[in-house]
């Protein structure tokens, strides 16, 4: 701060000016055009958007509890891991021959370094004065290519993961295991909101296996164990909502489904 000016009075021996600034928002009425105040006009719009997002977000958290699988078991050799979705593209990249093995330098250092480096230093690589996408075809084109690559790699990783899961019998849907056309899931099942998300509204399967002929694979006790303790991908306990009798009834119903083709 500059030296104390003799003309300015301070509060006590502090550096707080004694003269109060009036707490009045300036009037922009005389300004023409369509600009508006940050506070409160613009912030109100932004917070209204935030309120809608928050509402949707809370609905999501209520309807889909955060998954919790079984406790980490390093000896579980059958587990097929998957990184969080935003690391999938990198995960997939390292599976390719030209980016792993002897070429690992390429996959782990050169490609990520070039792409992240280019992103990081974009302002210095794309130096033209124009800001419109049409004025900088190289930058925009590269980004679009990178986006396509990321989407493709992530999709490929997901698809491959599901294929391996299906091959290992870990619960991915088997295409031939569709319920007969006249099959209708019973009330004990449809009443449960938690089941249909993975096993399908009509028990045709989805993330989890089809259940319409579950009685051919498990008996009532095994089904109860599965509901209570979870499976490879099935979450533990918390998905079932209802009384113990309803759970018994559901297990009995599932065990009775012998797949009458």
């Amino acid at each position: 701060m500059a030296k104390h000016d003799k003309d300015i009075e301070y509060v006590g021996d502090s550096q707080v000016p004694a003269k109060r600034v009036p707490n009045v928002a300036p009037s922009y009425d005389e300004y023409p055009g369509k600009t508006e105040l940050f506070w409160p006009n613009f912030l109100l719009k932004e917070w209204m958007v935030a309120a809608v997002v928050l509402f949707a977000f809370l609905m999501l958290t209520v309807m889909h509890p955060a998954p919790l699988e079984q406790v980490a078991d390093p000896t579980n050799a059958g587990y097929i891991p998957l990184p969080d979705w935003y690391f999938l593209f990198l995960y997939q990249l390292l599976k390719y021959k030209w980016a792993s093995g002897t070429w690992v330098m390429f996959g782990i250092i050169i490609i990520p370094a070039i792409s992240f480096g280019a992103l990081f230093f974009a302002p210095w690589l794309d130096r033209g004065p124009g800001r419109r996408p049409s004025q900088r075809p190289v930058a925009v084109g590269t980004m679009l290519l990178a986006l396509v690559a990321i989407v493709y790699l992530s999709w490929a990783a997901m698809a491959e993961h599901e294929a391996t899961l299906a091959a290992s019998g870990g619960g991915a849907p088997v295409a031939s295991n569709k319920p007969p056309a006249d099959f209708k899931a019973g009330e004990a099942y449809t009443k449960q909101v938690g089941c249909a998300g993975c096993h399908g509204a009509n028990m045709e399967g989805g993330l989890g296996p089809a259940l319409w002929d579950e009685g051919t694979r498990m008996d009532k006790q095994q089904i109860l164990d599965m509901i209570n303790n979870g499976g490879v991908t099935m979450p533990k306990g918390g998905m079932f909502q209802g009384t113990e009798e309803e759970k018994q009834a559901l297990a009995e119903y599932l065990a009775s489904l012998k797949g009458n083709k």
């Binding site: 109100l44 917070w47 309120a51 928050l54």
Partner: peptide
């Protein structure tokens, strides 16, 4: 727009802002 109306409109927006902000805080907390 007269000065008086401008102030009251701003005040109204301020109340709205407080309300929406309160909803956000309550919904989160």
């Amino acid at each position: 727009m007269s000065k008086d109306q401008g102030v009251s409109r701003r005040q109204f927006l301020n109340y709205c802002l407080t309300g929406v902000g309160g909803f956000l805080a309550a919904g989160m907390l």
